[in-house]
Amino acid sequence: MFAFAVGDSLVALDAVKIDTTDQARILRGGQHFQQTCLSCHSLVDFVNDPVAKELGLSKEQMPVWPEDSWNGHPPPDLSLIALSMSPDWLFTYLRTYYVDKARPTGYNNLVYPNTNMPNPFVDMQGHQVLINPNYFDKNHAHGEQFWYRVIKLKETGRLSPAEFDDYVDDIVQFLTYVSDPSVHARRQIGPWVLGYLTLFIMVTYAYFRLVGKDYFQSPKSPPPH
């Protein structure tokens, strides 16, 4: 999957496979989102969606931040984040926090350097630390190296690395759905419309070959008028 939108990531983005048909997974991601993200991030455009209803998301639960809170960087609404960034970006961003004493939150990020978002996964993921501190000095072309060449898990959290990747993956699947819920209807209607057009193309083309070709061979000029 390629996309033209990448922020100024310092590392290459991992690819994530989006499966919009896996409804159970989208719901699971939604539950994870409610547990770990909803305290700070809203999904305002999403509240009337059937999936939101199933999860019990409502407008009242959505946090509203004044412009000047969080030092002028309040947590943004994430209704369209998978489209304005990309699923790959999200998947890598959420997994590349590392310990950095210089930051007020104690953590920095490889994909979104100096992000103001505190690491939401400390207890699940554990701590990652820098193993290649010279990486930043060399002024690499953006996104040249994979993150695991730069940081490493030092202390495992509540989840194993594989479980944690799955957990984040679920959230990314959910946010991708949130960005464009029309995907279900599109997959449903698409084959019908295309099938109908195919049939129609075949009929009209056959008509042209059978009837039209003759006309071209012996064209009749129209009667004078």
């Binding site: 390629f2 939108a5 304005s84 698409g190 419309v193």
Partner: peptide, 21 residues
């Protein structure tokens, strides 16, 4: 309609990522 149903942003060429902000 292949584009409309299966790749409506056309890989960021028809609807650019930045414009979803």
């Amino acid at each position: 309609f292949v584009i409309v149903f299966y790749a409506p942003t056309f890989f960021g060429l028809f609807l650019e990522a930045e414009n979803f902000e």
